[in-house]
């Protein structure tokens, strides 16, 4: 019985470790920076040969034109889901929905803006 409990506890702990939620800052730094840049201004290391330049997340004017729902959708399902570039891939298999929600809030901090402001 004790062994069974230990096994279940270990399995649960392992599962928590394996799927621990990462912070938006850390996710942005790992995944988004490659295209959107260290400053978040759309000037990532990959941009030179891109036919469409990545969104400048510090641009309050353009970012305030996107609702939180739209930002969530484009992160999860990729550019074409909101009629934007294929170069923005779908990250739904990388981030949990909670992590994407946090990323949306992180984008709001980068642009210092809200939808419609």
């Amino acid at each position: 019985m004790a062994n069974k409990f230990l096994f279940v506890l270990t399995a649960v702990l392992f599962s928590i470790t394996a799927h621990a939620k990462e912070s938006a800052v850390d996710n942005y730094k790992t995944y988004c920076v490659q295209c959107h840049g260290l400053k978040g201004n759309g000037n990532g290391v990959n941009v030179r040969d891109m036919s469409v330049q990545p969104r400048d997340h510090t641009d309050a004017k353009s970012m305030s034109g996107r609702s939180d729902e739209m930002l969530f959708k484009v992160i999860k399902e990729g550019g074409p889901s909101i009629d934007k570039s294929i170069l923005m891939p779908p990250w739904g298999d990388t981030f949990s929905d909670d992590e994407i929600k946090d990323l949306v809030q992180h984008l709001r901090q980068l642009c210092k803006c809200k939808f419609g402001s």
Binding site: V33, G37, L38, K39, N43, G44, V45, V47, R48
Partner: peptide
């Protein structure tokens, strides 16, 4: 990577 003149490099 680091910040460059036009984009990260």
């Amino acid at each position: 990577i680091k910040i460059g003149d036009k984009h990260d490099v």
